[in-house]
Design a protein around this nucleic acid. Structure first.
Lengths: 176, 176
DNA sequence: CCTTACATGTAATCCGTTACATGATTAG
DNA sequence: CTAATCATGTAACGGATTACATGTAAGG
């Protein structure tokens, strides 16, 4: 029950149509709350029915029409209320953790190869985040308000990748 | 599509009935793959239908009967095959990250209070893991095989909590 | 007497993924 | 000529949560 709210955040930052939101999700918020376009369309319709957003149909030359969504006063209130409700600690789910524990019941070398790949993946992703951070927030100390928030969320991505690299590396080295 | 496999791991370690599995999940594997008893019962039935496990009804004096499940040869093969398939990088989903980004559209102080609570939560949980680690694995260097695996998964829990504490604290301090 | 623990389940609902569909335009 | 891009969607399915149901026995 939070894709709605993630969409309200994205649309508060800037009104957009479904596909554009899907693309934006792939680049920023989606790092922490992924969603496919199908799901986004479905949820946007429901949000419109509930009066959280309004849609404006925009004609485009040589392209299909798009429906651009804007957050209503109701939507802004829903978002503000949601921010004030307490979020409980998130449950952590990891398939690779289950496999780590299961390694003695299967091919450990295959698992170690899988883990080595994952480490490489996480390094790439961490590099990606760091590039974004250096490019978009060269002077973090100067930031405030919404910009400071987006920066700190990106920092979370970097720290999260650091965690993965550390843990997976520890597993690899213990079995080296 | 992995609760089945988590159950195969748990049942490979030791045969058990549904409720006992639910309890075990709350204490060990469940830290990384949570499940309610309802769901566990449903999945166990399906696994039995598929021949991955067999059930033995056990009468108990003064208590309801229980169905104890054991992994079959087929089940062991399914588990081994699954371990050899590659697991992709897990998508990270965080409601609090969405709220961090949304803070300027609502009551930031309420969010900061929420985050302070979360930090306390994560500290408690980290302490819990560390106690388990010190108690069950006093000499990690000596470990091998399945025990080493369970230790390293627990280490993952500790590192994960470290990540949360670091990130949330960074957010708090940036807004202090 | 009331509550908790034991033990297994059904039903409703929700959230999300995957596959498929349409139809026009632009790039190679 | 083919593939990709823009833009919006439907349909089917599966995983998971929440609420509810049953019945016995021990503990306070």
């Amino acid at each position: 029950m939070a894709l709605e709210h993630a969409l309200l955040v994205a649309l508060s930052e800037r009104p957009a149509a479904g596909l554009e939101l899907a693309r934006r999700f792939d680049r920023s918020i989606g790092f922490f709350w992924s969603a496919t376009h199908q799901q986004i369309y479905k949820v946007l319709r429901r949000m419109e029915d509930d009066g959280w957003v309004t849609a404006q149909t925009i004609e485009q030359s040589g392209r299909p029409e798009k429906r651009e969504y804007t957050v209503t006063d109701v939507g802004h209130k829903v978002l503000a209320d949601w921010i004030s409700t307490t979020t409980p600690r998130a449950g952590f789910r990891s398939e690779i953790a289950v496999k780590m524990r299961a390694a003695s019941y299967g091919d450990r070398d295959a698992l170690l190869a899988n883990i080595a790949e994952l480490i490489a993946d996480h390094r790439v992703r961490q590099g990606h985040y760091e590039t974004m951070s250096a490019r978009d927030y060269p002077e973090p100390q100067q930031l405030a308000g919404h910009e400071l928030d987006t920066y700190l969320v990106l920092r979370g991505g970097i720290l999260q990748e650091t965690f993965w690299i550390a843990w997976l590396t520890e597993y690899l080295e213990a079995h080296a």
